[in-house]
Amino acid sequence: MSEEVTFPPLMTGEAAGPGQDPFDLARQKAELGVDAGLVVYDLGADTLRAALVLAPEVPLAQAMAMLPTCGVGFQNALGALAPPEVAVHLDWEGGLRINGARCGSLRIAASTDDPAARPDWLVVALELPLWPQGDGGETPDQTALYAEGCAEVTAPRLLESWTRHCLHWINRWDEGDLKALHAEWQGLAHGIGEDRQQAGLNGTFLGVDADFGMLLRDDTTTHLIPLTTVLVRD
Rank of each mutant, 00 (worst) to 15 (best):
R49I: 02
L206G: 05
R172M: 09
V230H: 03
E148T: 10
P9L: 10
T143I: 05
D35I: 05
E184K: 03
A125L: 04
I225L: 10
W169L: 15
L216G: 04
L206T: 01
A110N: 02
W92C: 00
V232W: 12
R164E: 00
R102S: 14
Q198N: 10
I98G: 03
C166M: 07
E14W: 07
D174P: 01
G137E: 14
G149T: 02
A125D: 00
M64H: 02
V208E: 03
V58P: 06
P9S: 12
G187M: 10
D91H: 15
H190D: 12
A125C: 00
E152G: 07
A45D: 10
V88W: 01
L32K: 09
A189T: 05
P140T: 04
N202K: 15
Q62F: 02
P22K: 03
G17Q: 09
D114N: 15
D174N: 13
V88N: 01
E148K: 12
G94H: 09
Y146G: 12
W169S: 06
S2H: 14
H190C: 13
W185R: 03
A16Y: 08
G187S: 03
A63H: 05
P129H: 08
G203L: 13
L48S: 00
D35K: 13
R49Q: 05
L122V: 01
V88D: 03
D174S: 13
P129R: 09
D218P: 02
R164P: 00
V39N: 04
G44K: 03
P132S: 11
A26Y: 08
P22L: 07
D113N: 14
E175V: 08
G193Y: 03
V124S: 00
E127M: 13
R118G: 11
L215N: 04
G33L: 07
D91Q: 15
R97W: 12
K179W: 12
A36T: 08
A151G: 09
P129M: 08
